[in-house]
Design a protein around this nucleic acid. Sequence first.
DNA 1: ATGCCTTATTTCATAAGA
Length: 262
Amino acid sequence: MRIATWNVNSVGARLPRLVEWLSLVRPDVLAVQETKCAADSFPYDAVREVGYDVEVHGDGRWNGVGLISRVGFDDLRRGFDAEPRFPTDDVPPEARAIAATFNGVRVWSVYVPNGREVDSDHYAYKLRWLDALTRTIESELPAYEKFVLTGDFNIAPTDADVWDPSVFVASTHVTEPERAAYRRLVGLGLVDLEARALKGDHPFTYWDYRAGSFHKGMGMRIDLVLASKAVATAVTDAYVDREARKGKGPSDHAPVVVDLKD
DNA sequence: ATGCCTTATTTCATAAGA
């Protein structure tokens, strides 16, 4: 079984690249984030033409997550109970989480809030959201031996996960409270799968569009695959597909691809 | 060993991304 995650940064803008990538890599399940489209405007037909079904959770302009599968869907879930809202409880939750089960493997696709500035309202929301996600995963995990929590976490777990730690001092993505939230998730009994980089030593998954960051190696590892032990022990390969970050009209994130023994 | 921001929108400017 091949499972992948990819922050596509707009499924509308990325559709040609997405369809090309699905046809080339043929994952069984792809978790997508930042689809940036409402559920009723998703380009379902284009994805179906290459053999995939889609379930999405979408707001419209921002956020949006989905699961793209060629092995069906079971037990679909959009969002989660007591999901924090922003800026107030008067608004619905943002579309940041969707889950389904594929041949017995439970997969969550999540897009963790960015956080913007440390100690901002957005940062507090990010930590609240991570805390609520942790409680949800904790409650679901006992029901599934094979479990994958994947997506764009907007957290670099260690200093090795950013191209230059000195650049990120006092920035979001690397602060201790964010890293502690990551460790609490992993502490539920998950393994942060070590994807290999196709070039160099750092399996970065994101490179800013600006300043030639990609070709200078100025990246971050913020797209993660957290897996239960039953999944982790079945891994035969895991890699960051930096090829998808090259060429015309790429996302600023690269996919992470994980292969599992049957 | 690859190309120097990109996206959607209440569009010709803005907010957001990380």
